[in-house]
Design a protein around this nucleic acid. Structure first.
Lengths: 135, 135
DNA sequence: TCTTGACTTAGAGTGCGCTCGAAGCCGTAG
DNA sequence: CTACGGCTTCGAGCGCACTCTAAGTCAAGA
């Protein structure tokens, strides 16, 4: 598989795939006789997992550490598990934060909706008075 | 309230507060006779709300638009409500993504735990064979 | 009076994660 | 044979959100 095919399949640009290889996030890809990268489809699951780590906000330097551990075989299973467990806790905490934020947004939206209701009720359209403070 | 007091209360640095004012995310603060910012405590709720927007991944340029609308009074209620509703949907989608990622992480962690179990069971410690691919 | 420390401004620098450009090579279609 | 598109490398550039520096002002305490 050529880099552009892989790019289409995984949703990253060829530029980004080369960048990831350069920094070590992707293993060095085999080259064909003319020097072009020839990927094995198995790389897709690794890229997909990296995507999960990225979505959950893991910085690249941590992914690099994880990749390094993954290259060291069984000996690093527990270290990797620990990394993922710590990361999972951070993600859970972040999700909780987001849910709290969603409740705030809900409240804000509701208060705007209410205010719009009241504004509509006041049929007499007095000149719009600018707000005194940001809400 | 001086800038350092506000910084302590809101968890942003004085540098960041000045930066936010510079770009328009915070309203221009009153200065005392010697030119120092003198904040009203009411700014805290606005900063807190900005924090919610930030936590939920809203880019500063969108916060600026929201702030601009908020400065225009009642007339922009529905626009602001719409912005927040759209943002809320993005956040909800992101939370769903994160939850899917969490399930993947759970699976990965479980598989490491299992593998560690199996490794412990093999009392005969054969030399560690490096992994062939990243998992 | 002197020192200390917090404040002011404008602007430069940082870290992250890409993203792009330039220059050149290679293989296939016309 | 030539043109074309897609690949290669290296390194520069970008957008975001800060973060810090330098040079200077000011007010309160010893």
């Amino acid at each position: 598989m050529k880099i552009s095919d892989l790019a289409k399949r995984c949703g990253l640009s060829a530029h980004t795939l080369r960048y990831y290889e350069r920094i070590g996030l992707l293993p060095y890809a085999d080259r064909d006789r003319s020097g072009q990268r020839d990927y094995d489809a198995s790389i897709l699951s690794w890229i997909e997992f990296l995507g999960r780590l990225k979505t959950t906000g893991m910085p690249i330097r941590d992914m690099l550490l994880y990749a390094k551990l993954a290259d060291s075989g069984k000996a690093t299973f527990s270290e990797r598990r620990q990394m993922l467990e710590e990361h999972r806790e951070r993600v859970r905490a972040h999700v909780a934060d987001l849910e709290a934020c969603l409740r705030v947004l809900d409240g804000k939206i509701a208060s705007y909706a209410e205010a719009e209701e009241r504004t509509r009720d006041e049929k007499r359209n007095i000149a719009d008075t600018p707000a005194r403070a940001r809400t």
